[in-house]
Every structure is written in C-alpha cells, then in structure tokens.
Simulated scan of single mutants.
Amino acid sequence: MIIVIGNNGQLAKALRNIKSDDELIFLGRQDIDITDSQKLQETLNQFSVTAIINASAYTAVDKAESEPEAAYLLNDTAVANLARFCKKQQIHFVHVSTDYVFGGHKGSPYLPDDGYAPQSVYGASKMAGEQAIREIYPEHSCIIRTSWVYSCEGNNFVKTMLKLMNEKPELSVIDDQIGTPTSANGLAKVCLLAARNNIAGIHHFTDAGVASWYDFAVSIQQLAQQKALLCQVIPIKPISTYEYPTPAKRPAYSVLDKKSLMDSFRIQPRHWQKELSLVLDEISQSRPE
C-alpha cells in the first residue's frame, strides 16, 4: 500500500488518475496532520504502508515572503516528520522538490548535486526539507526536483493564461526567466515508479526542452486556438523581470539536468509542447458542451 500525502493538489489528482495495480490511499489535510509528529504516527499506523509519496507542500511562492512560518511548517517540519516515520518503519519515502532551491545563475542545466542558492523564502523552505531528508533517511528516500508544474486541475500558469487570453485585449509575459514546463501527469508516473521500485537519491524530472514563460504563453495560445479553447487571439508582449516585480525573487535560469533520472528510471521525458497539447485536450474534454 502506497500512501499519498495530499488529496486536492495537481500531483495528487494526477496520481489518482493513473491506472495502476498499486493500492493508493490519499490522505488530505482533513485526514492527517503532518505538522504534528505524534498525530502523523497515529494516523499512518492504521495502514500497512510500503511507501509514502509526499504530494503536499506550501507552494504560494510570493505569499511565502510574508508567511515564512507557514512555508517552513509544511516544507520543512512536516517533511522531517514524514522522513522520521519512514525511517522508523523502514519504508520508502518519495518527496517532490523544486528548481527554486537553485540560484539561477549557472547558465547550464543544474545537476542534482549542484549547490543550493535559493533566492526566496519558498526556495529556502524547500531546501530545508531536502536537507532534513538527507540528514534523517537518505538511504531509502527519493527527492524528485521539478519545475513549472501544471495540469488540467487546480490553479496553474496554463489555466491562468487561458482565462486571461479569453478576457484581455493583450498580455505581457516575462521572457528572461528560463526553465521547463512540466505536466503533472508525467511527474505522477515518475513518483509512482520511485515508490514502487524503491529508487533512492536526488533526481530531476521535467518534460523535455527549454522555454521562457513568454515561449510557454505563446505555445498555450497557439495550441488552444487549434483546439477551439479560445474565443479570440490577442497580442502577447515579451517583458523583463524588471518590468514585472514580484515579492519573491525567481531564478533567471533553472533548467534541470535529467540524466540521472533517465538512467535510474529508464524513461525518456516527452517534449513540453507535446505534453501541453495533451493537457489542453484534457481541458477541452472537461468543458461543458
């Protein structure tokens, strides 16, 4: 039995949609308090657990700047609690982390063992969670770093862009932050593989290819137009990070090197535009006639 911590987020919902022989139990906020070590143990001891996938996190990047305690509680304290439970029970632990643990100044894809240099409270809190796992239970834990996750569910860049493209006469989108969009569907499959096969270590997973947020937005419009998801086509203007200041600082370049994951998991990620097309198909199918 694999326990998924999280119920309503993009990753948890993508895991729920995977057709698998594995028994997955989803525990949301109303089912388990991962910030309380004692309560966490009492809840999880009710199950015959073989692995835990942590699909929960504090992900409000800008809000974290004014709520550091809340960010660290979910991204550090709760992660340490889960790692200790997994160590005590000798079960595998899969945890999802982020490209925001890096500084963004390297200029070439980040390797799993590159040094930390978070630029935000969110990034620092995710770094702290990783460090807790590496200190407590590195031998049977898998940290999967990813970036720019989206799906047909919840709030994400793709759904926000579709909404704005149907409402606004034009859009301005940042073109000097470079990374890789990642469909939650592919990420979910990787997490399940790690849990099922007891793969340990730190690995990077994103879809294939590289893009700026501007590139991503342009592709969303082009593909959504083809799939009749937009009622209009609007101009999209590239702008700099300087022109669109945010409370949290983002890495300028956070492409992740996926070689160790491709070798360990024996998978080849699909290009982000291919995955985007598939997710837009899901959004189209879920819309009322």
Rank of each mutant, 00 (worst) to 15 (best):
I53D: 04
A80N: 05
A64L: 12
A70G: 02
L187K: 10
E282P: 08
E170V: 01
H95L: 13
M127C: 12
S240T: 13
Q89F: 07
T35R: 12
D113H: 12
N155H: 06
L278A: 14
G104D: 01
L162V: 00
A70Y: 11
F205Y: 06
T246D: 00
T35Y: 10
P112Q: 08
L40M: 14
T35L: 08
I236E: 01
E130V: 02
K159D: 02
A64D: 04
L162Q: 00
G123S: 03
K13L: 12
M127L: 14
D36H: 08
L230I: 11
P181G: 05
A64G: 03
D21K: 10
Y100A: 15
D99T: 04
V233H: 09
N166R: 00
F216I: 02
E139Y: 04
E275V: 05
E42G: 04
S254H: 09
W272M: 06
S48K: 13
I34L: 10
V173A: 01
A224I: 00
G115M: 12
P109G: 01
P245H: 07
S284N: 14
F216K: 00
I144A: 11
P288I: 12
D99M: 01
Q222G: 06
Y110H: 09
L74M: 11
V96W: 02
V79D: 02
G201H: 02
W148M: 13
A224T: 00
V255C: 05
Q30E: 15
S37V: 14
V4A: 06
Y242D: 15
R270D: 09
L171D: 00
D113E: 15
K19M: 06
N81L: 07
S151R: 06
L193K: 15
T98R: 01
W272H: 05
S37C: 11
L74P: 08
D281C: 08
D33A: 05
I5M: 01
S151F: 10
L278R: 14
S254Y: 05
K126L: 03
K259Y: 15
Q268Y: 07
Q10E: 12
R145F: 03
P247V: 03
S97D: 13
K159L: 04
I239N: 03
R270L: 13
A200S: 13
K274E: 10
P235H: 03
K163M: 00
Q119F: 11
D36K: 15
S141D: 03
C142Q: 08
G28I: 05
I236S: 01
